[in-house]
Design a protein around this nucleic acid. Structure first.
Lengths: 123, 123
DNA sequence: GTAATATTTGAACATATTTTCATGTGATCC
DNA sequence: GGATCACATGAAAATATGTTCAAATATTAC
C-alpha cells in the first residue's frame, strides 16, 4: 500500500496480515540475542573455521598442527582462533611455547554434528 | 622446525604431534562436505537471515510481512530469501500476487533452537 | 646474554557480502 | 486496455571478511 506522507514523498506501509505480523514480532527475540546467534553461526560459516572446530571436536591441537590439518598458514589459523576465542567457542592452554586449543564446551560439538547431518544428507 | 629446501629457500615443517595430526586428518571430512557445512551455517550467520528464519520457524509469512518483522526493506528481504532458497532452506507458494515463504524442513528449526541455547545461555 | 621456535598481531590487500536504488515482471483490479 | 501492487532482479556502493607478509612477543635452549 502506497501512502502519501508529503506532497512529494510516498512510503509503503505494507502489512498483508497485521495480526500475524504482531504475533511473530511479539515472539521475536531481542535484536541483541539474534545478533549473538548470527555471530555464533558465522563462526561456523567459514570452511577454515569449520575445519578447525571439527578437528578440535576430536582432539586438542596446537596451532601449527591445526594449520597442517586445515591446510592454511599458522598465521591464518591464529587469526581465526582469535575470533573463535572471542566468541567463547574454544579455550586454550599453554605448554612451554606450544599453545593447545580445544572446544570450550559441547555446544559446538552438537551444532557441528547437526550441521553435518544436514550437509551430508544428500540428494 | 626450519628446513632448507634450496640454497636460498627455507620452509617450516612443523608438526608437533605427527601422529595426532594424521589421525585427525584421517577423520576429517572431505573438503566439499566442509564447504557445504560452512555454507549452511553461513545462511544462519547473518542477523537479517537469522531473524527471517526464526520468524518462519513460527509461521509462514509473505515477503512484505517478513520485511516488517525483520525491519529491513522488502528488496533486502527478497535478496536474502534468494540465498535461503538456493540453499534449500525455505520453500514458497504464491497466492495471487503475494508470495508466502516457509521453512523447507525441520532441520533449520532444530539448528536454530540449538544455536539459541548457546546464544542465550549467559557468559 | 644470544639464538631459535611457536604463536600472535597489525596493516595492506583481495575478495565477498549486504544494502540501496532503479527497474523489471507477474498478478489483480478497474 | 491501464493502473497498481507484491515481489524479484541487476548493478553500484558501502561494509565486512579472510589471507598474506612482516614484525612483535613469549618461551625455551644454549
Amino acid at each position: 500500500m502506497v501512502v502519501k506522507v508529503a506532497a512529494t514523498r510516498t512510503v509503503h506501509i505494507h502489512t498483508v496480515n497485521p495480526k500475524t505480523v504482531s504475533a511473530v514480532k511479539r515472539r521475536m527475540r531481542p535484536n541483541e540475542t539474534m545478533v549473538r546467534l548470527a555471530d555464533t553461526f558465522s563462526a561456523l560459516g567459514d570452511p577454515a573455521r569449520a575445519k578447525i572446530l571439527y578437528a578440535l571436536a576430536q582432539e586438542e591441537l596446537c596451532v601449527c598442527d591445526l594449520a597442517e590439518v586445515v591446510g592454511v598458514t599458522e598465521s591464518a589459523v591464529s587469526h581465526q582462533l582469535r575470533v573463535l576465542r572471542a566468541l567463547g567457542l574454544v579455550k586454550y592452554r599453554r605448554d612451554g611455547r606450544v599453545v593447545y586449543y580445544s572446544l570450550a564446551d559441547d555446544h559446538v560439538r552438537s551444532l557441528l554434528a547437526q550441521g553435518l547431518d544436514h550437509a551430508e544428507e544428500r540428494r
